[in-house]
Write a protein that binds this DNA or RNA. Structure first.
Lengths: 135, 135
DNA sequence: ATGCTATTTAGAATTAGTCTATACTCCGCA
DNA sequence: TGCGGAGTATAGACTAATTCTAAATAGCAT
């Protein structure tokens, strides 16, 4: 994604496009992918950026609050940030740690349970856990 | 669950039924529930047990390796251990942190995606995220 | 009793993430 | 041209959950 596009994208989501935010967005929103905060920091450092850890965490929080990225919990040791925000599901390979998208049109429900009293649905996520075949 | 039952349950899963393991099993396998390691430790302490933290963590690892309990990742800050191991799904209230079971017969799929080459399916989990209704 | 293996333990170490207090940046305005 | 304030960024201290390590213990077979 080009610099100008990123700038406008941030603005459209009500986020002031500071240098640091544009750098974080540049890494994560580059393509459909799932990165942890630490992976993003490593990427930035490799590219010569001096953004601080705190800023990266703050920025990812802002991005996910405003719907620019999505948090994914598959691994209880860290959060992943997903650059794809529209409804979709995941394959998670427990052997390799690989996390891959499943387009939402490949999953259809015949039935879903009624929601508990006093709650509303935020999302329905399907996670298919995989193992690498050994035979 | 009575002490003798727990003992036999552990043995059937190939786990030596030591005092500490029987205590941990006694807390978690008491009923269908989801507890974090720290919650289990608190429970044990309240009941006067002196099992160490390390043992609780080791024990939970052993239990989930042998299929006696199931790990659940909904919250990236800690693991939950689920005393129900057969296929089922979850409601997770992001406002309250409550985690509840959905019996698997309440969810039916019309279609699921093909698995990637060289992998086999370990599980299909549906997570319905909820918010407490504010209106 | 002796030795062997599995288990338990306290506490140190690790890891991801949050917090805090200070510093910087940008902008309107005197 | 300089001041003030809002919004951001930063280093580094801190926290919470979990894992590691090395030493103690338990139970069983000689």
């Amino acid at each position: 994604m080009a610099g100008l596009d990123i700038e406008r994208l941030l603005q459209r989501h009500g986020v002031m496009p500071t240098l640091q935010r544009r750098e974080v967005a540049g890494v994560l929103l580059d393509k459909p992918q799932h990165l942890s905060a630490e992976q993003i920091i490593d990427c930035l450092r490799l590219a010569g950026s001096r953004v601080s850890k705190a800023t990266v965490y703050n920025t990812l929080k802002i991005f996910s609050d405003c719907g620019l990225v999505r948090e994914v919990n598959v691994d209880s040791t860290r959060k992943f940030y997903d650059s794809t925000t529209h409804a979709h599901h995941h394959f998670y390979n427990v052997d390799t740690g690989e996390l891959n998208d499943i387009p939402c049109e490949l999953v259809d429900f015949l039935s879903l349970p009624p929601l508990p009293q006093g709650t509303e649905q935020e999302s329905v996520e399907v996670l298919i856990r995989l193992r690498s075949k050994t035979d």
